[in-house]
Design a protein around this nucleic acid. Sequence first.
DNA 1: AAATGTGAAGTTGTTCACAGCT
DNA 2: AGCTGTGAACAACTTCACATTT
Lengths: 210, 210
Amino acid sequence: MKKSGKPEIPRKAIYRLSIYLRCLQRLKTNGIETISSDALAKAAGVKSTQLRKDLTYFGQFGTRGLGYDVSQLSGMISDLLGTSSLQPVILVGVGNLGAALLTYRGFQEEGFEVVAAFDADVAEARKRSKSKKIHALSKMRSVVQQHGIRMAILAVPVTVAQEVANQLADVGVVGILNFAPMVLQVPDEVSVSNVNLAIELENLSYFIQD
Amino acid sequence: MKKSGKPEIPRKAIYRLSIYLRCLQRLKTNGIETISSDALAKAAGVKSTQLRKDLTYFGQFGTRGLGYDVSQLSGMISDLLGTSSLQPVILVGVGNLGAALLTYRGFQEEGFEVVAAFDADVAEARKRSKSKKIHALSKMRSVVQQHGIRMAILAVPVTVAQEVANQLADVGVVGILNFAPMVLQVPDEVSVSNVNLAIELENLSYFIQD
DNA sequence: AAATGTGAAGTTGTTCACAGCT
DNA sequence: AGCTGTGAACAACTTCACATTT
């Protein structure tokens, strides 16, 4: 993963900010207006000093003696992360996993809209998903340009992942959430985040050994 | 995540060992018998010194001037990770995501077998998945005991995730791969690995800002 | 010559201790 | 009194430099 603009906030802090945001959103839903670093840290599963340090990387939002304004803080974090407005994304590869991700509501809930899906075999893909958004790979460029797409979810087989990643970079996608179990080679301006379910399980397997 | 037995290998090194294992398996399939730390590191997307350091945390497997024996090294790593024999796991929560994970072949390919799935509403779950493995939550204990299950994939709604996690811990599961977007509270002997797709996307969103 | 293994140096991330607001 | 903000100490991880083996 590469960072372009502000190199100052640690990668891990960014990750935790997303977690804080999730917690803050729940608090807001529950009508809670103010929260201390201690309570929020507990909800997020981190130490309170770490939470405060993470926040000071990009500003000062708290009131001493009182805590943080839930709604203000969640606004600041989502501004920073770039999710304060709905972001359009595409999904490439409508196999088992891809079809499931198309129906997954979690993305929409957190501010991402899957505006289109692509597959090498549109007919087959349509059998797996009732979604009307499925297009041939050749349509990628026009859809990306039309919607101003910057991010893609890549759920194609590992054998074609690199090739499709190249195409994505070529049509102007700069962020790839990669589900293929391999390390993608991409141009500098493209960031990749990897999700590998088998590796997660394997990891767990190590940690549960006596 | 908690570690019980060997505290000496860094968490991050364990994660990378899984990646190396994936690469080694591919090499083995392609009939390659020997590989240098440099080449393997490149395939895994890390520096070669890091790879060598990671390996020395649990032994010495290379031949100077030559490199590593692909098949021997992959054997050593999967022994360490505890995936050298097929591991039975259960899946809890057959909603959108859960149903998809049931059809996902990646787990089987990496040495995990989903032997049973559970849902609060078996009838509804059966509509989403043709799998014959779907049971009521109440059957968890007997299945876990019968198959000697130690790991579970948790894909239930966030509202019931903690409750189901408690049940899992109660019936003797010690490893949970958690897809619910929240921090689970579990007993010390239970390890949790979190996968949060929305957070991954959100993260990416930060890194692609100009 | 080619490649591994490793102590030491360097870097990054986390926690502490406490100063400073409200 | 309660809680945030932060420099400094600490811990974890990564990289370097090079000795060592085949």
